[in-house]
Amino acid sequence: MQERMTGFRCKGCSRLHYPRHARCLSCKGTDFEEVELGNECKLLTYTKLYALPEGIEMSPLLLGIVEFPNGVRALGQLTGDDIKVGLRLRPRWGKLRTLGEKDIYGFRFEQ
């Protein structure tokens, strides 16, 4: 289990990335440090997905894109009712899906 959701700061130009890239999207630098993204983020857009892919059980699946105060955005599953744009959410570790026989864990966003 991972405690905190993290992004990757380029040591050359300070640009924050999520996910990690082999080279910085701004300066092509290759040195990164892992930084915490924070405990609260804001919902920018979302969907309730009814046509599910193989390996997902939750129906409908709530997916959204959030933004952290440092400007980093992330996509993830949402939990809770009455979802709307602008909602304050917190990242929380949990099971996301199964791939083959394997359970996959990661951060979801909850109210």
Binding site: P19, T45, T47, L49, A51, L52, Q77, L96, R97
Partner: peptide, 25 residues
């Protein structure tokens, strides 16, 4: 993107839906 999109259960219609909602706004 495998690590930050696919693992969450993203599908092409779901990406299009989130894009649509932003476009509507």
């Amino acid at each position: 993107q495998p690590d930050v999109e696919y693992v969450h259960g993203v599908t092409l219609p779901s990406l299009a839906a989130m894009f649509t909602r932003l476009y509507m706004q």
